[in-house]
Write a protein that binds this DNA or RNA. Structure first.
Lengths: 342, 342
DNA sequence: CACACTCTTTGCAGCGCTGCAAGCCGCCGC
DNA sequence: GCGGCGGCTTGCAGCGCTGCAAAGAGTGTG
């Protein structure tokens, strides 16, 4: 059986289709009497508005897209966990896309996004996207960027100050007396701007302490996975002069490295201290629990949604703003040892 | 500037709108000559089809919804990681919703889903939903259930055999000589059918071995988180007669328990052996790495999508089928100790 | 009692696309 | 040379809803 339409309801209630629409949307003032009639008819027919038709008619889709490189990266799923309900409260559904970090796919999205009528705006966490690619995007399309990239004049950008945070993480290790600190996760190529900011912070911390940087301790990682962290650590431990501390550019990398260290029978933090980045739940339950940089995820998620909706709601393009969420360093057993206590 | 429409393209190319539509969709045969003209016009105007209008016109949305209780449960994000690209290859976008395990929200979805024109079908992993609630759903709505629930005549159901898998997990511990095996995750109430299947397997394994079950070792858990696992373990270790092994109903629970055990200075597996369920990546990198039941996630994800699309494509309702994906037990250090090697 | 004004309700047109069925055209066979 | 046929192309109508502007109903005022 065909679903009931607005017109069906109108007919049954003896009013015009437009009035039914008004009742449903609470638009114009409607007499109590009329409203009751209409509501009765709606109930009787089990009418539900056709979202598609509504969207087509008013040119909005009621959906926002959230694009992340990898869904199984805990940081992203934890963020989505906040974004989805927050968007729902504001009347938006969330469409999720995953780029697998594929630059072609990412570029595609950012360029054609503007025309995709499927969603009204996009929250985007680019990975393999160079700054230049952003320039090609339609500046009138509501877009909020997540992560470490600096915004341009057209889009908003929400994230923490990665340079400062990375400097703090490194300084924490230096403060513990470590002198051979490895950095795992550098990406010294155009699409690795995010990683480069962390490397910059790492360097700054060394400079602050008047320490030299051993370039050979800066290790690259492609995808920031546990496997990447473990592989990098393996190489580091095979050297004659292994490090005495590790700064992982995200928690999975640090956790992968941790796994490798323990696997070799070394002690953490006595032999090697480790710190990660992102404060995913997993890191609170690893053994030992890992120290990390904790970004204010709630703030990032809600701010991103709010900014996006503001952009969507605005008729003329808003200038891009840069939102800095707060972060803090959480020291746990992987740097403090048993002293970290519970 | 307004986006170009089909009609704009038609005008520029000097053909009818319908022909442009044919070119775009590759429907009817079109002369090479005409096609070229149209394609040129499309490029010139930067035309992109309006998905909303298309959907409204042909009554399909090209979107499927995937509903999970919690996005930050690694098992679900790993599953989505497979579902999303697989659906995309088949021309579908994935809309993700998260119920937070809220029964009201879940019931709402299942009941009204049929009418939600936003998506053509739904893959659903219910949590707080009793079997009865399913009966209220519209049997003509394409729906595939994930997880442990047994299907009814109207929906498909994809999952592994939880009873068998749980029996194997428990038997593994028994085979190691353990006799006081705790089970963490039971949910002895109507919405906990999934958990109950695991408890059943646990009991069967004991029966198989001629061992009695100590009911006090069956611990409940609400949400299957690391925190739940840790809390349950804490209580178990505070007893005078702590267990010598633990079967966690999913990996996070097992990992939370593991954390607590190590925190107390006990050895794994010497003092307490642990096994989890789901084989999330995290468990391969924990210290020690945890043994687990590994469901064939690829098969589950792709089968679920394929079945759903088949249902969507079929004019008359298909009878519900039960798909059993395979699983295997992966023994790692948390039960085998160092012997598990690398 | 006519008129201005406000509050409700209405009809129309159209969002951009596709299903349908008819129309057109050139070519083949007899 | 004519009817028939198959391959391409077209026009129409309509998916279900909302923006817009105007009509209708009701009220108060001079």
């Amino acid at each position: 059986m065909r679903d009931a339409t607005l017109r069906d309801v109108a007919e049954l209630a003896g009013v015009s289709a437009r009035t039914v629409s008004n009742v449903v949307n609470g638009y114009a003032a409607v007499t109590d009497h009329t409203r009751e009639k209409v509501e009765k008819a709606i109930k009787e027919l089990g009418y539900r508005p056709n979202v598609l038709a509504r969207n087509l008619a008013n040119g909005r889709s009621g959906q926002i897209a959230v694009v992340v490189p990898f869904l199984d990266v805990p940081y992203f799923s934890e963020l989505l966990q906040v974004i989805i309900p927050h968007a729902r409260e504001r009347g938006y559904h969330v469409l999720i896309d995953q780029t697998d970090g594929d630059p072609t796919h990412e570029r595609e999205l950012i360029r054609r996004g503007a025309r995709a009528v499927l969603f009204d705006g996009m929250i985007y966490s680019p990975l393999g996207l160079a700054q230049d690619d952003l320039a090609e995007s339609d500046p009138t399309f509501p877009l909020v960027l997540l992560g470490e990239r600096s915004s341009n004049a057209f889009f908003d950008h929400v994230g923490i100050d990665d340079v400062v945070a990375s400097r703090e993480a490194t300084a924490h290790l230096i403060g513990l007396g470590r002198r051979r600190i490895a950095a795992i996760g550098d990406q010294p190529y155009p699409t690795g701007e995010a990683a480069q900011l962390r490397t910059l912070g790492y360097r700054q911390a060394h400079a602050d302490a008047g320490l030299p940087v051993d370039e050979s301790l800066i290790i690259q990682a492609q995808r920031f996975t546990r496997a990447d962290g473990a592989a990098a650590m393996r190489a580091l431990l095979d050297r004659d002069d292994p490090p005495d501390a590790v700064f992982g550019y995200n928690d999975p990398v640090a956790l992968g490295a941790l796994h490798e260290v323990l696997e070799r029978g070394l002690r953490v933090p006595e032999d090697i201290a480790l710190i990660g980045y992102d404060d995913i739940e997993e890191g609170r339950y690893s053994n030992p629990a890992i120290s990390t940089i904790s970004p204010d995820k709630d703030a990032i998620a809600t701010t991103a949604v709010d900014r996006l909706l503001k952009r969507i709601g605005s008729t003329e393009p808003l200038p891009g703003i840069e939102v800095r969420a707060s972060h803090r360093l959480i020291a746990r057993q992987s740097t403090l040892g048993r002293a970290a206590g519970r």
